[in-house]
Design a protein around this nucleic acid. Structure first.
Length: 505
RNA sequence: CGGGGCGUGGCGCAGUCUGGUAGCGCACCUGCUUUGGGAGCAGGGAGUCGCAGGUUCAAAUCCUGCCGCCCCGACCA
């Protein structure tokens, strides 16, 4: 029996996945709980990751003609009432502002100055943006209208988890208006493709593009497309959604225009969003028992330099060599930006090395007198084990730098894809389906299940039955799945295609 | 809203049953020694023990009330 390897994170993923997740966030200093229920403080290392996600997405959005704008945090209550399904979907989780002043009363402050109409803190902005769109659109020449906003939203959830579901979270919400249904549908798909591109090529998270069932659809939408990813505990995570809203919101907000045929018509709108939940997805897709693993193309920093010296006279030479290397690295461009280099010269021994492993930086480079003598650097890769380090000639390291990062990026994507494939199955038999989703130990469920590709007749009842029987939900109907006739996993009636079922976050 | 658990230095906890006025580990600060690795020794700073009442000579500890948080469930575009 091999000696148990000491891991930087306790417990391990295998021992207790949810607790591991919390510990990783804490150890990597990405975020922490705040004094406010369900809200988090995003720390610099976590925020830098979010900024990179923002940067990459924002570029893609703009390439498709979208422009950024900003709308109010507060939404008049009656705005939300305009779209029936929408109200029903969000009413339960709205934070509401009812007063505009605090007054001294006894020992403390109490709200005073009741508002004539309460304001809802936006849970999403369809209604308030719709109001502006109604003013901005009067002719077919004003269309399409392509707007995005980077903002925070509040949804008063019962149970929260850092990054995955917080009462307040950061996101982007795109809102577009079009003259035709075809064009709006096309935009819905286009933005889903942007999300899939960012998820796979930057976050190295393999995703399945699909369509939500009627039950899982966005309140008020005609059609909801999504990307679904599998985490290492084999649960599904919805990583982004893109909605075709038909004319529902245009009618609610009165977004009308004069057509080129001199007629009058309601616009066709879309909305699409991704949030800081992507950060949680990244952690759960790539993290290991030593902490986070940041994919190089989105990492807050690509490399950390760790100068090593004993005597004061060695220090100046090592620091000079380090500074020069840092400068050379910062001239390299990677994933559309300059390489970000961290230099950590804290004199705290090996702890320093482990700090960066836990943070998941792709490359750690040790620079000591011996390396300098050989004009070499000692390189550790985060996708390999902590002690697996290689000496590289300085010039070779610099020349091969981006290729090395690409290799790590590819490895991470491949690992995640392999895991997903290993736990995805076509299932046609209900008892096999049940076994797939039933843990051996019900008291302390082990990691089990995955993505079951099974036939579904299309009825709400079957979907609800499976949900109540097994806590398994219909994640999506894959867009790229082949047509294939079969029998519904629940009722046995005929089905034309497979859906993906999984336990989900 | 139901079931369970927990509030003690920055973090994690012991002490509570059997009242006697606060302790451990990590982190932090100082010094010395170490040094290609999550260092060792010595010294040090830091806590109205969730809040409010009550019992008592004496309350982190017993009693009452309140507040907050976590886990499970319900819920989750």
């Amino acid at each position: 029996m091999a000696k148990a390897v000491k891991t930087a994170i306790t417990p391990t993923r295998q021992a207790d996945y949810p607790e591991w997740y919390q510990q990783v966030i804490s150890a990597s200093e990405m975020a922490e709980r705040s004094p406010v229920r369900g809200c988090m403080v995003i720390k610099p290392w976590g925020y830098a990751l979010w900024e990179n996600i923002q940067f990459q997405m924002d570029e893609r959005f703009k390439e498709t003609g979208v422009r950024n704008a900003y709308f109010p945090l507060f939404i008049p209550l009656h705005f939300l009432e305009k779209e029936a399904e929408h109200v029903e979907g969000f009413a339960k989780e709205c934070a509401v502002v009812t007063h505009h002043r605090l007054e001294q009363s006894g020992d403390g402050l109490v709200p005073g100055g009741e508002l004539t109409e309460p304001l809802v803190v936006r849970p999403t902005s369809e209604t308030i943006i719709g109001d502006s769109f109604a003013k901005w659109v009067s002719s077919y020449r004003d269309l399409p209208l392509l707007i995005n906003q980077w903002a925070n939203v509040v949804r008063w959830e019962m149970r929260t988890r850092l990054f995955l579901r917080t009462s307040e979270f950061l996101w982007q919400e795109g809102h577009t208006a079009h003259a035709t249904a075809e064009e709006a549908t096309e935009r819905t798909k286009m933005m889903l493709d942007v999300y899939a591109d960012i998820a796979e090529n930057y976050l190295a998270i393999p995703v399945i593009k699909g369509r939500k069932s009627a039950l899982e659809r966005f309140p008020g939408a005609v059609d909801t497309l999504c990307i679904e990813a599998m985490m290492q505990d084999r649960k599904a995570l919805q990583a982004g959604t893109s909605h075709f809203l038909g004319q529902n919101f245009a009618k609610a907000s009165n977004i009308k225009f004069q057509t080129d045929q001199e007629g009058e018509a309601f616009a066709w709108t879309t909305s699409w969003g991704t949030s800081t939940r992507l950060v949680g997805g990244l952690i759960m897709t790539h993290g290991d028992d030593d902490g986070v693993i940041m994919p190089p193309r989105i990492a807050p920093a690509q490399v950390v330099l760790l100068p090593i010296y004993r005597k004061p006279d060695e220090r100046s030479a090592v620091m000079a060599y380090t500074a020069k290397l840092a400068a050379d690295l910062r001239r390299i461009r990677y994933a559309g930006r300059r390489v970000t280099v961290e230099v950590d010269d804290r004199d705290i021994g090996g702890t320093r090395n482990w700090d960066w492993i836990k943070k998941g930086i792709p490359l750690r480079v040790e620079i000591g007198p011996r390396d300098i003598a050989a004009d070499a650097v000692f390189v550790g890769r985060r996708d390999k084990t902590p002690r697996d380090k290689t000496s590289l000639a300085r010039s070779a390291f610099l020349e091969g730098f981006t290729a090395l990062l690409d290799e790590i990026q590819a490895t991470l994507f491949q690992r995640a894809s392999d895991l997903r494939d290993a736990h995805s199955r076509q299932i046609d038999d209900r008892s096999e389906f049940d076994r797939f989703f039933t843990p051996r130990n019900p008291d302390k469920p082990e990691i089990h299940g995955g993505f079951a590709h099974a036939h579904w007749c299309g009825e709400d009842a079957c979907e609800e039955r499976i949900k109540s029987d097994l806590s398994v939900t219909l994640r999506c109907l894959p867009l790229e799945g082949p047509k294939e006739t079969g029998a519904c996993i629940c009722c046995g009636r005929s089905s034309e295609r497979r859906a993906i079922f999984a336990k989900a976050y």
